[in-house]
């Protein structure tokens, strides 16, 4: 998708080894290994209950794994085990170098804060102090995600579903993160709204060379956005590889079922 992907050094950005999560005796996911490089978009697909959202939570440190490790190459180039970060370091990472776009905007936005405030808040978290600069940068980002600046002081409760998702994207990208997690970002949107959002994500990923881990049940979304795909079933990764190869030449019975169950992907 973008030329940044391989022109960057070969050191991976995110590495997970032997990740597992049990909720009591119930399996969330297990035996997951993955490596993500800068600029690389990885789609995790599977049906509800396949463990894909659990995996996303483990990678983004929202959940602590029952086994295994996740490490991340910090901006200074050092590879750090995320479990060993202090709470302050972890929070800084989440607010600056990472983004998280959620399926339900109300979980990713502050619904009682204005649109401009939602974007500006992340800038303040990275040390911006000048009100005029923050407001200007927030306004620029609203334009980028096609939200009219006159809506800047409205709070997102007054926004449509598509606008809320675009606002989430602005809020997350304003700090120029290198890695963005996305959990079903287009689910529940009308098709035309979805197309607009996907187009925006595609462009921003390319422009900023973002690494993305996107969880989706929509194979067409995976095909459009991702370089690589991981297929999960019953908490395990059953098949993975180049996105178009896995979708056009699926090997596992479950992947063949998934691919053959959609009208066109």
């Amino acid at each position: 998708m973008s030329q940044e992907m391989t022109s960057l050094p070969d050191a991976p950005l995110l590495v997970a080894e032997g990740l597992a999560k049990y909720y009591g005796s119930r399996l969330g996911c297990r035996d997951v290994d993955l490596t993500l490089h800068a600029g690389e978009v990885l789609a995790i697909v599977g049906e509800s209950g396949s463990g894909k959202s659990t995996l996303l939570s483990l990678l983004s440190t929202e959940l602590a794994p029952s086994a295994g490790h996740v490490s991340y190459r910090m901006r200074d180039g050092e590879m750090r085990d995320l479990a060993a970060l202090s709470e302050a370091e972890r929070r800084l990472l989440l607010r600056t170098d990472w983004g998280f776009v959620r399926q339900h905007a109300e979980q990713g936005l502050r619904m009682a804060v204005s649109a401009g405030g939602n974007v500006g808040e992340r800038l303040m978290a990275v040390g911006w102090r000048h009100y005029g600069n923050i407001r200007q940068e927030a306004a620029d980002w609203l334009v980028r995600v096609e939200i009219a600046t006159e809506r800047m002081d409205d709070d997102p409760r007054t926004f449509s579903g598509g606008m809320r998702q675009r606002l989430q994207i602005a809020r997350n990208l304003v700090t120029r993160p290198r890695l963005v997690f996305m959990d079903e970002p287009t689910s529940g949107l009308d098709v035309s709204v979805q197309a607009r959002l996907l187009d925006l994500i595609r462009q921003l990923v390319e422009e900023f060379g973002l690494a993305v881990v996107i969880v989706t049940h929509d194979l067409a979304v995976a095909r459009l956005l991702s370089h690589r795909i991981m297929v999960m079933k019953s908490g395990r990764v059953i098949e993975q590889g180049l996105t178009d190869q896995v979708l056009d030449d699926p090997r596992e019975p479950y992947t063949q079922l998934l691919v053959s169950s959609v009208l066109a992907a």
């Binding site: 030329q3 992907m5 391989t6 490089h37 690589r228 590889g241 180049l242 190869q245």
Partner: peptide, 10 residues
């Protein structure tokens, strides 16, 4: 590897 394949395509 997918990354190699994408580079070859490019």
């Amino acid at each position: 590897d997918p990354r190699l394949m994408l580079r070859l395509r490019r």
